[in-house]
């Protein structure tokens, strides 16, 4: 509480200084909000941008979307610095590393730019508590990836009637979101579905070809394999192809995390059974809305959890489902 008021005071002071330098803003010109995604070449963040743009339009906010082509701090930090140099009124960012982005974001905060993290977080992801050096962002807006993993486990267990062998196809260890999905999936399976055996997780380097080969190999070793959980697009796409190449399409259930067009196409053709769709547009919308609320003197919650939608063959063609398909 106290910490927030200190930060707020600092922000006000700097905002005052800025208004001297830029008289246009004092004259009531619209706010500029910058959105820095984890990477620019990903349907998830492109969809987040769509939601953010919708909110920006509704609120008369100017939205800037800039990011790096790959999900790593070495490429993200220069983009962040360049954005800070342009002095936006608020910053929405999906930090690419829990630790490495703390210092660069502190620079933004001390320049008087309120920081809100979307999708990923810094520190523990619990902000405005007065503990640690990474609690300064105002809010963390994201879907809970652990919960998403649990939902994937429940959906798959239901398909399998509560028994059988499954494994997780993951990209590489150390990525917070995919690690949480994997952990959520495995924990839920162990806790709630004792009839299901979880085989060791396979890491595919985000290479669909490797994920496919691993699926075939696991299938060769375990002909009674019941299902696979692909923790991201290429993991799911690759696993589905491996199952198909292995002649077990339809028999082995494939659950995908995220719902870009490709996954939706695969659900229609039967290669993938279930997709756990996050709501990236919702994250973007609430990100801009939260920034606007803060900039206009409202208080905002330190965390906003966005939802999931389960897409399968039954609802994939529903008009109501279409807004959860990732697209620009």
């Amino acid at each position: 509480m106290e910490r927030r008021s200190v930060l707020g005071g600092l922000g006000l002071g700097l905002a005052g200084a800025a208004s001297l330098a830029i008289p246009a803003r004092a004259a009531g010109k619209s706010f500029t909000v910058a959105l820095i995604p984890g990477l620019t070449t990903d349907a998830f963040y492109i969809t987040m941008h769509r939601g953010a743009a919708a909110a920006a339009k509704a609120l008369g906010v100017h939205l800037v979307f800039q990011g790096a082509p790959e999900f790593n701090p070495v490429q993200q930090v220069p983009v962040l610095d360049a954005v800070i140099a342009r002095k936006p009124d608020a910053l929405l960012i999906a930090p690419t590393d829990k630790v490495q982005l703390i210092k660069p974001l502190q620079a933004a905060a001390s320049a008087g730019i309120p920081v809100i993290t979307v999708d990923t977080y810094i520190g523990s992801g619990i902000y405005q508590t007065g503990s640690g050096d990474a609690d300064f962002p105002l809010s963390y807006i994201a879907s809970n990836n652990t919960l998403g993993g649990q939902m994937a486990a429940r959906a798959l267990a239901k398909e399998l009637g509560g028994k059988g062998k499954v494994y997780v196809s993951n990209i590489q260890p150390g990525v917070s979101t995919t690690d949480e999905r994997t952990a959520g999936f495995i924990d839920e399976m162990k806790k709630a579905f004792p009839g299901i055996t979880v085989l060791p997780t396979q890491f595919n380097d985000d290479d669909a070809n490797k994920a496919a080969s691993q699926a075939q190999s696991v299938l060769a070793r375990n002909p009674d394999l019941g299902g696979v959980f692909g923790a991201n697009l290429f993991s799911a796409m690759g696993a589905a192809n491996g199952i198909q190449q292995g002649g077990a399409a339809g028999k082995v259930k494939v659950v995908a995390f995220d719902a870009p067009q490709t996954i939706i196409g695969n659900i229609k053709s039967g290669l993938i059974d279930i997709a756990i769709a996050q709501h990236p547009a919702e994250i973007g919308w609430f990100g801009v809305a939260a920034a606007y609320a803060h900039l206009t003197g409202q208080s905002i919650p330190p965390a906003i959890a966005t939802g999931f939608t389960i897409i399968d063959k039954q609802n994939v063609d529903d008009p109501a489902t279409q807004k959860f398909v990732y697209s620009a």
Binding site: T40, T41, D42, A43, I46, P69, L233, P260, Q261, T262, I264, G265, Y326, S327, A328
Partner: peptide, 13 residues
């Protein structure tokens, strides 16, 4: 490639 793909993957029918 990313420009042609609009930043995402292009499903094939």
């Amino acid at each position: 490639a990313y420009l042609f793909a609009d930043g995402t993957t292009v499903p094939v029918q």
